[in-house]
Design a protein around this nucleic acid. Structure first.
Length: 272
DNA sequence: CCGGACGCCTGTCGGC
DNA sequence: TGCCGACAGGCGTCCG
């Protein structure tokens, strides 16, 4: 899926087309997602103005005057902005059709994503309430990571991908951030110094910022709102590069190994 | 409380 | 060429 940069890319791409516009029609072709798409979605949304699209972690929040549509892209989801008369293809599950011929279309082949409604504060919704800080939140600091890590004997990669620690860092950007910070992904989180966590905080922000600038990373399913892929794939230094030379040291080939049930990539020389 | 294993889905790819 | 298993960007749940 979309990790944070892909979700933010989607938000930035979609928002200018539809913010401030009336949502005229909701078309749901498939309700079977991670959670069922609510049957009353059209009744709640049609005729309402979309105030803004926010992002929290990997969730998109479509704010309407009467509540918020919470969208998650799962592993294979994407949103496109298309002319209203564009015929849907396989796995195009939901259309939000706005005035001015702008159709926001959700495609999600694996249906791990979701689209649910809340009339209350979306940040207090059970899906969002227990999430950790955004990567750019000052709270996400070396002191914070060092303190949390003391209770975490497991691999730092798992620690970094835990949404209660920091949000938005998935499998690609965990490997990339750890490589840039020179930290081995299997190193126990509690065995990492405050100084190295300071470097990791910077590395995470640097990688995510750069990825957002390039429209995210497309491995397979992800597309930007206009259908283009994310170009950060060309900037990946370790992810999916097993066997290739490390761009940092040049003399070592990138290893791959399953850590916490997820494939991980690292340079055994640059990362300790 | 924690981490680890597993399941949810479909599509694709590599090996035989 | 076809079949079959492994694997894929996430995350909630269950179990020990």
């Amino acid at each position: 899926m979309p990790e944070l940069p892909e979700v933010e890319t989607t938000r930035r791409g979609v928002a200018p087309h539809v913010e401030g516009r009336v949502l005229e029609t909701v078309r749901v072709r498939e309700t079977r997602m991670r959670q069922p798409v609510p049957a009353d979605l059209a009744a709640r949304l049609e005729g309402r103005i979309l105030c803004a699209i926010r992002r929290r972690a990997k969730y998109l929040l479509f704010d309407f005057p009467n509540g918020t549509l919470i969208v998650h892209l799962g592993m294979s989801g994407s949103l496109r902005v298309l002319p209203t008369d564009t015929p849907p293809q396989k796995h195009d599950h939901i259309d939000l059709i706005f005035e001015g011929d702008a159709c926001v279309r959700l495609r999600d082949p694996r249906r791990f994503g979701l689209m649910v409604w809340t009339s209350a504060d979306p940040l207090a919704h059970p899906l969002l309430a227990h999430l950790g800080p955004e990567p750019w939140d000052p709270k996400f600091s070396a002191d914070y990571l060092t303190a949390l890590a003391q209770a975490r004997p497991g691999p730092v990669k798992n620690f970094l991908m835990d949404g209660a620690v920091v949000v938005g860092v998935g499998n690609i950007y965990a490997s990339e951030s750890l490589h840039r910070a020179g930290i081995h992904p299997t190193r126990p989180a509690r065995r990492i110094s405050r100084a190295r966590y300071a470097g990791l905080v910077l590395a995470v922000r640097e990688v995510l910022d750069a990825a957002i600038q390039l429209g995210g990373t497309t491995l397979r399913d992800f597309t930007q709102e206009d259908g283009k892929p994310g170009y950060f794939r060309n900037e990946l230094r370790v992810y999916a590069r097993a066997g290739e030379p490390c761009l940092q040291c040049g003399g070592t080939h990138i290893r791959q190994r399953v850590i916490g049930q997820r494939m991980s990539y690292f340079c055994p020389v640059c990362q300790r």
